[in-house]
Amino acid sequence: MSEELKFTYNVDGEDFNSAGQASVSVKKNLRQLGIDPEIIRKVSIAMYEGEINMVIHAHGGTADVFVDDEKIGIVLSDKGPGIADISKAMQEGYSTATDTVRALGFGAGMGLPNMKRYTDYMNIESQIGEGTTITMHVKYQ
């Protein structure tokens, strides 16, 4: 493909049950583009974790997915409370999620580490009280 493709999704922060819908759509769109299933799996998991985080911590946000010749880019933006200590948040097992969220099977402190694990590049920009933007790339090779 010669031109970059872009998909934009709104992530509803009000309903935990509907979290993940954007990731499901991304997966379908990437399949239709004929992208390698292993690349799709990495993108889907990273985006799904990000989506869950946006619902749990930030009352939703937006997700932009870019597809070009070399990679798939994901930009997740929210206007939530921000991440106080990014290096702590990147540690496996560290979580500020509530017991309610844990009872739903998430909040084990694996979200951000998982997003890093499944992507080739990840950058977090966060301001307390203003929000967080996470950029991730998954390369084809």
Partner: peptide, 26 residues
Amino acid sequence: MMSDVLAFAKNQAILVTGLMNPQVIR
């Protein structure tokens, strides 16, 4: 714990769980 499934499972075809919510399916 779905976070652990997302972290550690690789190409496993069956998920055995006692957790009940739509995120299990997703």
